[in-house]
Simulated assay, not measured.
Amino acid sequence: MPIQTPYETIAAAIAEEMRRDPTVLMFGEGVATKRHDLLSEFGSARIRNTPLAEAIIAGTAVGAAASGLRPVIDLLFAPFLCYAMDPLVNSAGKLRFMSGGQFSFPLVTLAMTGSGWGVGAQHNHNNEAWFVHSPGIKVVMPSNAADCKGLLKAAIRDDNPVLFFIDLALLHQPGEVPEGEHLLALGTAATLRSGTDVTLVSYGKTVGNCLAAATTLATAGIAAEVIDLRSLKPLDEDAILASVRKTGRLVVVHEAARMAGLGAEIAALAAEKAFAALRAPVLRLGGPDAPAAASFPLEQAYAPSAAAIGAAVQSLFR
């Protein structure tokens, strides 16, 4: 399999979908400038730069989706989604329901999120839980290049709006990517490591930290199972519950603020549907309830490290 970065696989996935379906188009902040190959192949009618006006970009995409097109928009950094909340949440997320199913809104919004580049608080904010809480919107956040391709192609083909979060720290991290048609169904988690003693659930960059922690824990005789959610909504509840019922222990890890994050939802899921299997309290590791620092070392401290994850797991066995 070829080696590609998520940045490269995103372009490849969009190109494949644009060749397959003439209704797919891409516009947003700097897309024609950054994606020369796409512009060269598909022209300025389908690959187009826009002003730095997120509400207008998202509003235009909603109108395009309602008229039968399949827009992919790039709003760059996730905090800029604040400007696009009304068209994405109040229009794209609700109008299919309000129309009684007469309209569909196949719209993909790309946004970079998380630490890794020291871009400061106004450019670094993991706000994926906002959109998980918004009816009618699907949310994905891959942890590797192969999943970027499979999830993005599936998102473009979906008839609902999809928020596609790209972890900044992973953007240029190479990995093996299947050639040709590669689709991953939204709502399907991946078990990256099997174990019998504790379940580690994560997504985005902290998946790698969980895998590193699992390797260290194995030397201490603790077999950790690692689940990469990949899709935050729909959420693969069956995969989570099956693992928790097997291991009896659960630690949920994400870089986003711990308070009211995905970890809280997953902890509640385990408590409601797998309580009898639990042999220890569910633990959540997340970022602090504070804006991100521009300092690279301080920024790195926001995301739960492999050492912190390992320590949390070992506390469950004391």
Rank of each mutant, 00 (worst) to 15 (best):
W130C: 14
I3N: 14
L229A: 05
F42C: 11
A189W: 04
L38R: 10
I3F: 12
I14F: 08
A257Q: 13
G101D: 06
A271M: 14
L25Q: 04
I56T: 08
A257S: 15
P71G: 06
K233W: 00
M112C: 09
T188G: 03
T113S: 15
F164L: 03
A280V: 03
E176P: 12
A13C: 05
A53G: 04
T50M: 00
K149C: 09
V119H: 07
G68E: 12
A146E: 04
G101Y: 04
Y83V: 05
G68W: 01
Y302E: 11
A224Q: 03
G248T: 03
L298P: 10
A271I: 10
E272F: 03
G310I: 15
P135S: 01
L186P: 01
N126C: 15
M98K: 11
C148L: 09
L76S: 06
T113C: 10
S99R: 04
R258S: 12
P2F: 03
L229H: 00
L241S: 06
T109R: 00
A32M: 00
H123N: 05
R46V: 13
K34Q: 10
V226S: 04
L269Y: 10
A169H: 09
V24S: 01
R35Q: 11
V252W: 06
A276R: 10
P106E: 11
R35E: 09
D37T: 14
D74H: 02
R318F: 01
P304R: 11
S67N: 14
S231Q: 05
V201H: 07
G116K: 10
A212Q: 15
P135G: 04
R48I: 02
A223L: 13
L163H: 06
S44V: 14
S134D: 02
T5A: 11
E17H: 06
A213M: 10
L183D: 09
P22I: 05
M98F: 15
D74L: 00
A267D: 13
F131N: 14
S202C: 00
R35W: 10
N127R: 09
P174V: 05
G136T: 04
N90D: 13
P79K: 07
E128V: 07
S44W: 00
A53I: 01
A218V: 14
K205D: 09
L278V: 12
L262Y: 08
A220K: 15
D159W: 04
I309T: 08
A145L: 10
T219E: 15
A307R: 12
F42I: 13
L278Q: 13
N209E: 07
A45H: 12
P178Q: 07
G263E: 08
A64Q: 14
V207G: 05
S315E: 07
A267Q: 11
A92E: 09
W130E: 05
E16N: 13
S40Y: 02
L88C: 06
L170G: 08
R258D: 09
L81P: 00
M1C: 03
P142W: 00
A257F: 07
F27I: 12
A53S: 11
I14A: 08
A84Y: 00
C210I: 04
C82V: 13
K153W: 02
V253I: 12
L283A: 14
A311W: 03
A45Q: 12
Y203I: 07
I47L: 04
D167A: 12
N124M: 13
L88I: 13
